[in-house]
Nucleic acid binder design. Sequence first.
DNA 1: ATAGGGTTAG
Length: 567
Amino acid sequence: MTFSATKILTNKRLAEQQCLTLLETCTTLLNLTQIHTQIIKLGLINNPLVLTKFTSTSSNLNAINYASLILFDPHSKTHLYDTFLYNTIIRAYAQTNNNRISSIEIYKKMVVNDVMPNKFTYPFVLKACAGVGVLSLGECVHGCVVKLGFDDDIHVCNTMVHMYCCCGCVGSARKVFEGMCVRDSVSWSAMIGGYVRGGMAGESVADLGALELGKWVERYVEREGIRKSMELCNALIDMFAKCGDVDKALRLFRGLDGKTIVSWTSVIVGLAMHGRGLEAAALFEEMKSSGVEPDDVTFIGLLSACSHSGLVNEGRKYFSSMTEEFHMTPKIEHYGCMVDLFSRAGLVKEALEFVNNMPIEPNPIILRTLTAACRLHGELNLGESITKQLIESEPLHESNYVLLSNIYGKMSKWEKKNTIREVMGEKGMKKIPGSTMIELDNKIYEFVAGDRTHESYKEIHEMIDEMAKKIKMAGYVPTTSEVLLDIGQEEREDALNRHSEKLAIAFALLKTPPGTPIRIVKNLRVCGDCHSATKFISKIYNREIIVRDRNRFHHVKDGVCSCNDFW
DNA sequence: ATAGGGTTAG
């Protein structure tokens, strides 16, 4: 009797072990189905170890899907482990790239089935919301957190900060952050990361103030003696670089001991944004000698650094070193960087040849880079044909139409250009209007082209006229060919003068004492004419002008821009 | 048995 009981027990344990081993090696859905049958047969459906294993095979989407089937399997009576099981499945989905929405679906089922979420549930759910980026959903979850009283948990709050930041709502993130009674280094990294990304997303309000805010954050962290973890330092480096003080970022980086690949990559990317390609390349070499292996992200940073500084040969060299020296397979992103490198440097033929010889199909992003280069360097027919293909493959992507319309503008095919605009109108698409922001005396001002609503409208326009006269005398030639409208020369010049960059600069010249640096933020890429005019203005008015573009910084001083005209 | 933050070209 004793013997057989032991035997059954041993068998059970053996079966359990067998299932665990099977799950360990399982790769396909078929295998999973078989294992599931086995699990039911062996009566292991309520075995927590087996179920955990089932759900934690998270790298395998099939396994996650199957695990969620098990959860709703009529054979399983999972009362004891309900919350835990839901949590593991929610976590598994939250960690995938494309199935975060399932994570939220499971959470909803959890609520419907009256299974109580616990404080471990919410970081997963919020992470999924952050990944999906839907604010309303996140807000709803926030409401549940408050209702259940989990808003006093530091982990939950940290993820809420992260979630709001990812949804582009830095203000709400800040509110949660302010409401926390204890903040640790994770809270700060999440908040700093939010300000940085807020800037990148064009939520310029955050990022204009961010340099001052950043300094304040650093002082605060120092004063409170908050542990400066590697993640926090890397977030600070990234923030200072993206808020315009790349030297500060470099100093912080130099002071780090135990630099990780993320630290190196952050600072290389930072230098790239500021057009300091040679320094980025030098740092890359230093990194190699210090024994840190570059990864694919490092190469994106490095190649974009070459691209933004016009270092074509270096870019080529580094691209081939990826395969030859580091035995990596370049991804579509790296090919994209190379196309961008050639395009910026005006080597349209090389760019085209490169695309034709690529071992993978170019994606729409690469094709758009190529057509933009075609437009800029006069290969209009080629540009037209590629853009038409793009519209066919992505009929809902607004920038394809803008590109084609601009190509027709450059060809002076006004009728065709108008047709495109009409098509866009019919489809309810609109070109994003260019705008420029500036912060003066703690107030944010936003300008759009031809703005007449501003209180100082008259003064600004007088200033612009004066600016135009002075810089023309110094040799500025308005690039009227960039005005893609069917109008005469004088009207073209006038259209250029009403660009939002020029309005903001004129306003700053009026309102700030001589010699003060001017910091402005654009939502799109800076236009060629404004770039040229800014250089002249910096010299004549003796001002340093720092322009933050959609992609990068331009430090304009004494008639020279840090981008060396590659952007 | 289960948790949070940092790097990515156009």
